[in-house]
Amino acid sequence: MAEKISESDFFQSVIRADAERVDLIFSSLDGDLMSGYRGDLRFHPETAGRIKEKFIELRKEKWDADLDWLKREARSFVDGIRDIARTAPATQKYEPDNQRQRKERLESIGKHVNALADLMNDADSMALGWLLVQFFAIHENDDEPGKDPMKAQAMALHTRKFLREILPDLGLAAIEASKTLPLADRPNPYLTAGLILNRRFYDAGLLEHFKPEKNSFGWLCMSEMMMLMGAEDSDKTSYWLRKTIEDPESTTAWIEGLRKRAVE
């Protein structure tokens, strides 16, 4: 009989697998954006050991977990921080497109979506049904609609109704977005790294320890990560932790927003 796994262990394994999947995707990317990936970066064993020890200490305060399991979690956590340091500098390679070009592309999307909506309205159900037969054969590797023309036509009617409702709105949204598109800033590697680290703390159940104070676990992880990324010293650690926490895209801000809505 297979050994039972607790609900807590199951969800933690899901979180760990998701983090490993993201790391794998980052490390396998190529091209200009990832040309700055630093696969050679590694923590000194003493540094990695200090982070692991603190991670285990804080996790044991919240969960009565098996020590071997905690050690594996700690190792995964440290590897995740290392991989953030490896990938975040690549964001410096990102050069936003000219603002005029960005707006023109959105406007073009809006016009083409509107044109697609008109074409979908003009096409007959049989033609749309045959289109779906080809779509399912290519995208889903499913030839079932091709064996049942009536089913294909019914699906086409439903699809056309859905697209008739959503495509005009999407086209209008793209055109409106082209008029109000904010400027694209080059991401700061330390803020990028901080935002990813912030999420890692949440995944580990340690978000309350992501603080700018020098004695916090967040400060320890952020400072060592910044040093690995090439920072000359740790003087700016608290600054970037505060910037991360205050950023509307941070996990901390997201959680705080949920709390506020819950009490309203």
Score class of each variant (00 low, 15 high):
T244W: 02
R82T: 12
D18T: 10
S8C: 04
R105H: 11
R82Y: 02
A2N: 08
P149M: 07
Q134Y: 07
W130N: 13
L29F: 13
E264C: 06
S125E: 10
R21V: 04
A2V: 10
R42M: 05
L195S: 02
D9A: 15
E104K: 13
A65E: 12
L170W: 05
W63V: 13
V14L: 14
I255K: 14
I56W: 00
L41P: 00
T87R: 15
L106Y: 02
P248E: 14
P187S: 04
N141W: 03
N114D: 15
Q92W: 04
A193W: 02
I5Q: 15
S234Q: 14
I15E: 12
Q101W: 08
R59M: 08
W219R: 06
K62F: 00
D118Q: 14
T252K: 07
P89I: 01
D118W: 05
Q153S: 05
L181A: 07
N141L: 09
A154P: 01
A74Y: 01
F77A: 12
N188H: 13
P182S: 07
Q101M: 14
S35E: 11
F162W: 11
I51A: 04
E213K: 10
A115G: 11
L70T: 01
N188K: 07
D68K: 11
S223G: 14
G194V: 08
S125Y: 03
F136A: 07
L58P: 01
D124Q: 03
A2H: 11
M150C: 02
V113I: 15
R21S: 10
F135R: 10
L228M: 13
R16E: 12
R38I: 04
W219E: 08
L131G: 04
M1H: 03
T252D: 06
S250R: 14
E264R: 12
T91A: 13
T251D: 07
E213Q: 11
G205D: 06
A184S: 09
D32N: 14
W254R: 15
V263Y: 08
V14K: 10
S76P: 00
S6I: 04
E232G: 12
Q12W: 04
I255D: 05
S178V: 01
E208F: 03
F55P: 01
L128S: 04
H139T: 04
M222P: 03
Y190I: 10
D83V: 09
R242I: 06
H158V: 10
I84V: 15
L206K: 01
L195D: 02
D235I: 12
N121E: 15
H44F: 08
F26S: 15
A17G: 06
M225R: 03
T91Q: 10
D143V: 11
I138S: 12
P189C: 05
T159M: 14
F11T: 06
H209M: 08
D124V: 00
L29T: 11
L67K: 07
A2M: 13
I255E: 12
A177D: 08
Q101S: 13
T159D: 08
